[in-house]
Nucleic acid binder design. Structure first.
Lengths: 252, 252
DNA sequence: CGGACATTTGACAAGCTTCAAGAGAAGTGG
DNA sequence: CCACTTCTCTTGAAGCTTGTCAAATGTCCG
């Protein structure tokens, strides 16, 4: 059984000591690739809970791999309405869109204290030229990230409140499980109801009532920053969720 | 002034005769790259209006560039509710996600008669190895596509019906304009109200009433399969839309 | 204890969906 | 050429889901 990765962990100075790679959740890389990744990496950063990793308006020329903690990508309308586009969990590659898009960006904010590896986006081209397989991996990650947003769009556009909440619980649980952060039906769950509301396109009040209803049905429990799923079968049925996250994904 | 690309056009047998490249909307490629693209291409297909380009459940190992016509990516829930994820317009690269994702796919359906270039996804790796800049371009395209879905998620999650409709009109108009398919305020507009409803996460009836309201306000006109924007300023303000599509994008 | 913040609950209003049905356009076959 | 079907657009009415407003409770922390 996997031991949950401590979200407080700091990214080690050497990539070959990387705690994420040891989980078995990621595709192995050869020595040469690992060496390049380490050289590609500018360094590491820690971002405190609630702080901004990437400002919504101005790109900062950096790419990240989230080593530990939770974060989320979001967009806001000018009157303040906020939509969370996706949650970011350990192993996720961050900032690709920024490299390319010109228009309004999305912001990234840390939910918990986070630790990140930093890469200069200027050298991304170098990566594609010298290590085409890593370039391929990055495309893989971009496509996977888009696939998740596709799912969330289906959720926001066509599922009702109950289905949306069930979907989010299953989605996050499965992703955490994949990177070895679940023990039994229990996972760390540092987000609050406002995060959930913003991710699902619901109001805070309605999110609360919906969450409460599912809880009274005995489907889940959220306590002390931990989520326990008590009936995944029922949640999957309600959400019409049958996704299976891939066993191994690339890791930069 | 650009001449609108006829959506009935057939993709020519030689890539150097490609009508899309002549529009100036796409990044130029050198002779060597063009030669590879032509060799990479398996051939061309035509898909009739309403037919399926990519089935929602089974990937078919193909990648496409949409040469002419409109299509859309979509997902459905098991009870039939459908969400359109994005519309596909001439020049768009199709099918990347399929290459990578394992789980439930998205489907692609032609709105009008379409003409497409076909590429074998098996040789994608070859492209990355031999032409890293083309690999880079593909990542660019993946990131751009995700950026669009991000926007649509914000729309479905946080905009009301009026704002959503205004957003969609502006979004599509700007994209069509970019590939030279707009004359003055007029563009081909082959989708019906059900498409709009499915793209925005609204019911057909409410979409109709909202569309009607905007029309009575003198903001737009839809007639004979053509859309005319009469007050882009007002539409932008309503939608809180300030995006500027990039002047040139890669084209495979 | 006081203050900030997340959760919870009730009441009411509003927006959106559903149901139902009619009008108009376009295509089909006798 | 006309009856008939099909499809899209349109409109009205009723009902339900969700949002908004307001306030209470609980918790953590200085």
């Amino acid at each position: 059984m996997n031991i949950p990765t401590p979200t407080s962990a700091i990214c080690p100075p050497q990539c070959n000591a990387c705690g994420l790679r040891k989980t078995g959740a990621f595709m192995p890389v050869n020595a040469e690739e690992l060496k390049f990744i380490e050289a590609f990496r500018t360094g590491t950063t820690a971002v405190k809970a609630g702080a901004t990793i990437l400002h919504e308006q101005k790109p900062n020329g950096k790419l990240f791999t989230l080593y530990s903690g939770w974060a989320f990508r979001y967009k806001t309308l000018s009157d303040g309405r906020r939509q969370i586009l996706n949650f970011l969990l350990p192993g996720d590659f961050i900032g690709l869109q920024q490299k390319f898009a010109d228009g309004p960006m999305h912001g990234i904010e840390a939910v918990t204290d986070t630790s990140l590896c930093v890469f200069p986006r200027k050298r991304l081209w170098e990566l594609f030229r010298n290590f085409p397989n890593l370039g391929y991996d990055i495309t893989w990650l971009a496509a996977r990230e888009e696939g998740m947003v596709d799912d969330h769009l289906l959720t926001a556009g066509r599922r009702n409140a109950t289905e949306r909440v069930a979907m989010l619980l299953m989605h996050l649980f499965r992703r955490l499980e994949r990177v070895g952060m679940a023990e039994g039906g229990l996972v760390e769950f540092p987000i609050n109801q406002q995060h959930i509301a913003d991710a699902l396109g619901l109001s805070l009040v309605h999110t609360n009532k919906t969450l409460r209803r599912l809880r009274h049905l005995g489907l889940h429990e959220i306590q002390d920053g931990k989520l326990r799923l008590l009936n995944t079968r029922a949640l999957e049925r309600i959400a019409d969720y049958y996704d299976t996250p891939p066993p191994q994904v690339p890791l930069l």
